[in-house]
Amino acid sequence: MRSWIVRGLGMAVLHAAAAVALAKVTVYQPTDLTVLTVVVLALLVGAAALWSAIDAWLGLDDRGRVWFIAALVSGPVAGLFTVIGKSLLVDQTGLSALGSALTGGAAFTALLVLVPAGLGLFVGTRIGGQGRSEEDSGQFSSAEPAG
């Protein structure tokens, strides 16, 4: 299976579960959401950053493109899963919510995956580069003949 499918669907399920959980909490405690919303957003950002940093540290091939496509996939899929989850578990949300979930909600989710993933790729590359020798990374030093 392509790695962007796993990352995109994984992040979509995580974002949809967080949105449905926040909606469920809103039903019972509509005024006490500020701290919970910040914590949930921090966990979502941390998950994308950590997963992409691990990919960079392990040296996943074409990891920037993988995370870019995963972010684009996770947006609309998370919007669809959020509408389905809210309709089944929270308040019988209908098809009228699907339009905004697939446009603005999808764009927000894609950015909430893409930006931390870019940061995670940057950090993971820096961490991964320090622990490897030149032979492990496939680079030749200037003293060795190439060929």
Rank of each mutant, 00 (worst) to 15 (best):
Ala42Met: 15
Ala70Thr: 02
Gln139Tyr: 08
Phe81Leu: 15
Trp51Glu: 12
Gly128Met: 02
Ser100Ala: 10
Ala78His: 04
Thr103Gly: 07
Ala70Met: 04
Ser141Met: 02
Ser87Asp: 10
Val39Glu: 15
Gly104Leu: 05
Ala70Arg: 03
Val77Thr: 01
Phe68Tyr: 13
Leu33His: 02
Gln92His: 08
Thr103Val: 11
Ala97Met: 03
Gln139Leu: 08
Gly79Pro: 05
Lys86Thr: 13
Ala106Gly: 00
Gly131Met: 02
Leu95Thr: 09
Tyr28Gln: 12
Gly85Asp: 10
Gly124His: 05
Val66Asn: 06
Ala106Phe: 00
Ala70Asn: 05
Ser96Lys: 10
Ser52Trp: 14
Gly75Pro: 03
Thr125Ile: 04
Gly59Asn: 03
Leu41Val: 12
Thr93Pro: 14
Ser141Thr: 05
Gly64Ala: 05
Gln29Cys: 10
Gly104Lys: 07
Ser52Tyr: 14
Leu119Pro: 07
Val25Cys: 13
Arg65Leu: 11
Thr125Ser: 10
Leu72Cys: 10
Ala143Glu: 05
Ser142Thr: 07
Gly104Gln: 06
Leu121Glu: 02
Ala107Gly: 10
Ala48Glu: 14
Val27Lys: 06
Glu135Ala: 02
Val113Ile: 09
Phe68Leu: 13
Ala56Asp: 02
Arg63Ser: 06
Leu119His: 09
Leu102Met: 08
Leu36Phe: 14
Gly99Glu: 08
Leu114Val: 08
Val123Gln: 10
Leu36Ile: 14
Ala107Val: 10
Ala70Trp: 07
Leu43Ala: 15
Val113Gln: 05
Ala53Lys: 15
Val35Gln: 11
Val115Glu: 08
Leu95Trp: 11
Pro116Ser: 14
Leu33Gly: 10
Gln130Trp: 06
Ser74Pro: 07
Gly118Met: 11
Leu121Ile: 06
Ala106Val: 00
Trp57Tyr: 09
Phe81Asp: 08
Ala101Thr: 12
Ala53Asn: 11
Thr125Leu: 09
Leu114Met: 10
Leu89Ala: 13
Phe122Asp: 08
Leu44Trp: 12
Arg132Leu: 02
Ser74Asp: 09
Gly99Phe: 07
Leu43Ile: 15
Thr37His: 14
Ser87Tyr: 04
